[in-house]
Amino acid sequence: MSTLVIAEHDNNSLKASTLNTVAAAQALGGDIDILVAGANCDAAAAAAAAVPGIGKVLLADNAAYEHQLAENVSLLIAEAAANYDNILAPATVSCKNIMPRVAALLDVGQISDIIAVDSADTFQRPIYAGNVIATVQSADAKKVITVRTTAYDGVPAEGGSAAIEALDSVHDAGLSTFVGEEVAESDRPELTSADVVISGGRGMQNGENFKLLEGIADKLNAAIGASRAAVDAGFVPNDMQVGQTGKIVAPDLYIAVGISGAIQHLAGMKDSKVIVAINKDEDAPIFQVADYGLVADLFEALPELESKI
């Protein structure tokens, strides 16, 4: 059996989600190669080659792949898929965009967001916001799978020395162009890979009050998240959303502040190792999943917490 892992990268370095996905590929067994598609992405390919246990790295370096446009990259992956039984990618925003397109090009189903491999064709995945775990079986000879990265500890990033093989074919569908992006600059760790996450909900009352989380985040080297309610209310941007339709996180410590604990939010954070909830409503459902609950006014508790950690 052979598996092709699609690397998530920024052309310069490999994202941690790639290492989680290699771990899922190891659970499937067999040979593992990594595909790095991008532009001027030699450094990312070199990082992929350093991952232990990789057969080879396929490098597709072309302007058509620079911004991971799904129309172009999906054609490349579908072509490369000819030599593999499984195509695995992390269930990140970028790969969620690309992989179903690959599956349709190959006329196979996609198995999204797997959290466990039961056998070569049977997998577990959460449905209904994680309220139910479904065991699903694929009837397709070739399997296109995305991996919930929080379900797998990443493999080491260093120690291997796989060969890098350039792919020459260029796929430019000519359907789409990249115009630009607005990416918030932040010194904080990324939400999905941070060891500590502190999130605010509707109880924060407005976007300005999210500053109260920043001092604590700085001290704990934490990423800052938000509930859907806080995003819906316009307090903070959507890329901070933790939940069923936002980011799925599982840090060592998750601090939920002013978050009631709707099903949609719990779906995104309940696999965190330690959960702290701060809420003035002692009946808030968030306390049912919290290891440590503090019933308090967050406007008093947050400054005190910041001063004591």
Binding site: V108, G109, I111, T122, P126, I127, G130, N131, V132, I133, A134, T135, V136, Q137, S138, A139, D140, L253, K270, V274, I275, V276, E282, F287, Q288, V289, A290, D291, Y292, G293, L294, V295, A296, A301, E304, L305, K308, I309
Partner: peptide, 29 residues
């Protein structure tokens, strides 16, 4: 292409404790 074999509830999280104040919270953490 993909069939559902079975469904199960997710692993339940044990309900934790309530702490009295910020000092106790910091101590526990």
């Amino acid at each position: 292409h993909v069939s559902q074999v079975k469904v199960a509830p997710p692993a339940e999280r044990q309900e934790g404790i309530k702490v009295a104040d910020v000092d106790e919270l910091v101590d526990k953490l």
